[in-house]
């Protein structure tokens, strides 16, 4: 009920923009992306490990062998002396379920309405790039450290450094998204009475 109905105050301009065409199209797509990342995370993991294999081959100069598996794809990498222990990419080590919440929330905001839907898409793109990119980097680093330092290199990178890296990336992605959402969102104190 508008403010003028009872109190005689001038009606406050509506705070929220209705979702435009971009929001109405990209909102459901973003939600669908979230669903795909959850439902199709096994496929995503295969793609993720394929990308790591490419990075290991072209950046690290290693030979790689990728084996799909019902539970987790496995990547073998090594130098001329032979392949090291295989690295299995489980759900917990994939970025799929870390990206899905961003796609879900930003998709909802696109459907809800935002003055700058392009910014939300930018935020989503940045979050995906940051998290997926960091995880690719982490996995490649694990391969490199195992190749260089063996089992100890794998353990330290996988257990500690990689986890800290992902935590930092997720936090940065979150704060970045909040900053982008806040910039295009009408602040309450700027709305004229």
């Amino acid at each position: 009920m508008p403010a003028t109905a009872l109190s005689g105050l001038p009606a406050r301009p509506a705070t929220r923009s209705r979702p435009g065409r971009l929001g109405m199209v990209c909102g459901p797509l973003s939600l669908a992306l979230a669903g795909l990342l959850v439902g199709g995370e096994h496929l995503y993991r295969n793609l993720e490990l394929t990308a790591v294999a490419q990075l290991a081959t072209h950046l690290l100069g290693l030979r790689t062998l990728l084996l799909p598996s019902p539970h987790a794809p496995v990547l073998y990498a090594g130098g001329p002396e032979g392949m090291e222990r295989g690295i299995a990419l489980t759900t917990g080590c994939s970025s799929a379920l870390l990206i899905a919440p961003f796609a879900l929330v930003l998709g909802l905001l696109l459907l809800f309405g935002h003055r700058r839907p392009g910014r939300l898409l930018l935020a989503l793109g940045l979050a995906v790039a940051l998290i997926a990119g960091t995880n690719l980097g982490r996995l490649t680093l694990i391969v490199a450290m195992q190749h260089r330092y063996g089992s100890a290199g794998f353990e330290w990178t996988h257990v500690l450094f990689g986890s800290v890296l992902m935590m930092a990336a997720a936090l940065v992605a979150l704060l970045l998204c909040l900053a982008v959402v806040a910039r295009g969102s009408a602040p309450a104190e700027d709305v004229a009475p």
Binding site: A14, R18, F112, G113, A182, A188
Partner: peptide, 13 residues
Amino acid sequence: IWRSREFSALGFL
């Protein structure tokens, strides 16, 4: 709240 025009995107969040 979802249907309302009184909440900004940040407010809804």
